[in-house]
């Protein structure tokens, strides 16, 4: 999959990245933004490191060869953060909507001039598709959070449940996966 405007986007890559990052960071308080930008060592600033890595990774799908495999990889890494940090789903996905804005602001007019509306629509269609894909990742992370809660309760009461025969325990292999949840294992 290749976009006509790829070269144009590539030329303006660093400008696009900076503006995009600024828009995404506008969701954080000023003090935090200063820190997020200051130092992006992986362990001293894990949040800034991962957001930057993710945004750069996603952007390069528009400036290099577009790969769903890579898009998914970066989306997962960003959306796991968004799923625990954003107060609303729309906020969690907004960073991709901002990309649309940035593309229009920085290179929109030139894409129109050189490739016509098709050139711009092609880029924006890709962003739309990425947003849909991001929704999968967001939901997966939220589902995971929910799963953690009941798994944690099971672990907490593990021995009591095991003694009562209410645990399907893979290690014991005594109950097939499809068996009803309250069948006894002992």
């Amino acid at each position: 999959m290749s976009m006509r405007a790829k070269e144009l986007l590539k030329e303006k890559k660093s400008e696009i990245f900076k503006l995009w990052r600024d828009k995404v960071y506008s969701l954080f308080p000023e003090e935090t933004v200063r820190f997020l930008k200051k130092e992006t060592e992986r362990f001293e600033n894990p949040l800034g490191y991962r957001l930057e890595e993710g945004l750069k990774g996603l952007l390069s799908q528009f400036t290099e060869e577009f790969s769903w495999e890579k898009v998914d990889y970066y989306l997962e890494r960003i959306l796991k953060i968004q799923a625990v940090q954003s107060s609303r789903p729309s906020e969690a996905l907004s960073f991709l909507y901002y990309l649309k804005s940035v593309f229009r602001e920085v290179v929109g007019e030139r894409i129109l001039e050189e490739y016509g509306p098709e050139g711009l629509l092609e880029v924006e269609d890709h962003i739309d598709a990425v947003i849909l894909r991001a929704f999968n990742q967001y939901m997966a992370a939220r589902e995971k959070l929910n799963e953690l809660k009941f798994q944690e309760w099971k672990s907490r009461l593990f021995l009591l449940l095991k003694r009562a025969g209410y645990i399907y325990d893979e290690r014991e292999g005594s109950l097939p996966r499809e068996a009803h949840h309250n069948e006894k294992t002992l």
Partner: peptide, 29 residues
Amino acid sequence: MALPKPDELLRDVNYDRMPAKHWMDTKPE
């Protein structure tokens, strides 16, 4: 022709940007 700016619409998508307020004026949610 100036292209529309989509992030202007985001103001209506039900979330607020972090307010640029003094810390004493922000409340936890």
